[in-house]
Write a protein that binds this DNA or RNA. Structure first.
Lengths: 224, 224, 224, 224
DNA sequence: CATGAATGAGAGTTCATTCAT
DNA sequence: AATGAATGAACTCTCATTCAT
């Protein structure tokens, strides 16, 4: 009502709690939020669904988060590493490039499968909230850049179509893979449709990727 | 115009009004809804914003539509033909296949550009409402099937990589194109980022598509 | 969540409703608010107390007012005229000045009595909300200025102590009267104390006022 | 210091702590509360603001006080002596009565200036909480009674208008002074208005007071 | 004596939808 | 066919106070 001076007012906490109890409660809230968001989607989830699931009161939520948005960010944070570094196995860059692509596509698909509901959630909120749109973009860009580097390296070694702009090609192929994964694990799974031919899809995606880069083409770089 | 039978509709739909005045009011509601939805997104649009923009009362809305969902369906209906048949020019299937692909990719991108805000809307609601998820899927499938037929035809004529499953390949390549368009016209445009290299993107997409199908590969490129 | 453009959104209405029904509802809300505020004070009144008393739903409140503050403003508006022009009887400026002062003090006290609960309310909120502090100040100033003019006129006619600054004197004497009224009708009444000697208080106040201005003192009005 | 008997206290009050540490903590809480209340007002101050400012935890508060009300009482207690006995110098009752009045008005104004924010606070809460309304009344009454005794004495000595009821006159004149001080130091100061003519105000108030009592009128001013 | 996480009732507010006119 | 006032369930968020540690 009266204009309150901001000076002494507490700012919303982003810091992690210091006590073990606080840490535990915060964790259980994040875990509960993940469950609830995955089950009901972001929009249909109410804060009290989350606090109920975490077995704490509505007020406790605000000890750790200032809004639904903020806890969602915490939830999405969790899956970040798994999605950004899906394959723990280090691939030798001197392996057969086709095998490398096949392996990394498979790793991506597997990571997507593990986090499918969270990816659906991210897709939902990124179409609602600019903050999460940015988040998704950043994560996608990380992938795109990595793949672009890989394409460039293949080009430099004379193995891939030199005509392609590595970044644009990476954008296109990365989009292809991620959208296929989304359609397979989110859209098809939710739609109650037939499960779909996972191995076939993966094989096709990899073959298309390989073809698209013209890997293993005769005389790559020579007169065509 | 006869009342469309319920069975074909995904959403319950009131019959079209019979009087000229009614038709006019309905039209202005749909037009207003399109504007409002495009400006504010589905969730943030209030029915009252729409009726205001249409210069009618809140109650009048329910003379023509039973819900917010339903008018959204009507709005999305509008752009359907433009998105499903983007190129009015019929391409001769015996034209150069590369040229055909280039032309149809360009036609798709142009249609996306024209309807970018509506596509963003569709993307938003398809991640919220299963009904619209189905709608988007159906539209995507129409594309996928058409492209699959085209791929199959190229394979049958010995022009394309015969190892590829036409449907899966179409799914992958169609996903690639549509996601590129979404990123270019929706994500990048909204993010205030640099406009991006449209022609380069299109060229890259087409080259990847062509490569991926191995069009014009040695051995397949006999005298046609 | 997403930044919504203010452009098309409706602004809170301050305009009076146009239909008779709307007018009726708004009136009953204001009347109810007055009752509730007077009974419970501003802070302890809940919006639903008001809507209950007005026999309408919580949502209806927001058809007419955007906040508790706004309906309070409407309530206080009502009593404005009664407090600012308490005496309907026009006093002849050539009447006996003492009689004029006595009459106007009485009129003020009577108006205060009629609106005591509202004055208590104004006192409460003016110590809480700067907006209402301003409102009270404005109303007080109107009185002060009127009394200052009257004092100046008496000085010009040689009837009042010429040493006094009319505005400062008016501030002091007006404060005296209004605070006496507040104490008598609000503090004493609420405290469950003895009712207090109304006539004596009025007589004393008037005599002090008259003395303070030195009305009828020797030298101004001939020998006393 | 013995525990003060409940009977004399207006609010339930915990006993003072016995240890030096406890005394220190309690003091810092009261000091912090004074700062916070003065800055934000009673309603907008949160207990947590106070405990933060006092560098202790929320729970500690309840070691020393049972409620927000109670610490407010402690804060107001602090300024009591300064407001009730503003002039430490004892004025000789046989001094010139006008000089005595001028001096005591000045002393009151000075004390008000020193405690302006606290007086504003008292004004705020006395319009919210009956307990504090009583507190303010009691303090005002102490003044009124003292001034009444002084008026009566002047009347007995033939120096003041004998027609006036000393108590009622004191109420009126005391109200005048305290309200002027409130308006000057609280309302005007907060409103960002011009600072106002302090000396002029004081002079006018004193002259009005003197006039009102008819001090120094012919016939009463015999050789004293 | 101190901590700070936990509590939970309760408030204001929104808006799709209904319905008397 | 049109109006626009009325509805009311549902939601998020606050903060004085408690209590296990």
């Amino acid at each position: 009502m009266p204009a309150t001076p901001e000076s002494d007012r507490e700012l919303p906490n982003r810091e992690l709690p210091t006590t073990p109890r606080g840490l535990r409660t915060r964790s259980s809230l994040v875990a509960a939020a993940r469950r609830v968001f995955e089950d009901s989607g972001y929009l249909d989830s109410r804060l009290i669904d989350i606090t109920h699931a975490a077995r704490c009161s509505a007020g406790t939520f605000y000890t750790y988060f200032t809004s639904k948005e903020e806890i969602l960010a915490a939830v999405l944070e969790q899956a970040r590493d798994d999605m950004l570094h899906p394959g723990t196995e280090r691939v030798d860059p001197h392996d057969d490039p086709v095998a490398v692509i096949a392996a990394s596509n498979r790793a991506y698909f597997e990571a997507y499968r593990r986090n499918a509901k969270l990816m659906a959630l991210l897709e939902q909120v990124s179409n609602i909230d600019p903050e999460f749109r940015r988040l998704r973009r950043e994560r996608a860009d990380a992938f795109v850049r990595r793949n672009a580097r890989s394409i460039e390296s293949l080009q430099n070694r004379g193995l891939a179509d030199a005509e392609l702009d590595p970044l644009l090609a990476s954008r296109a192929l990365s989009s292809m893979i991620s959208r296929l994964a989304f359609n397979h694990f989110v859209v098809d799974a939710a739609g109650g449709n037939a499960p779909g031919d996972y191995e076939g899809l993966l094989a096709t995606a990899t073959r298309l990727w390989v073809n698209a880069l013209q890997l293993g083409r005769s005389g790559v770089g020579g007169p065509e």
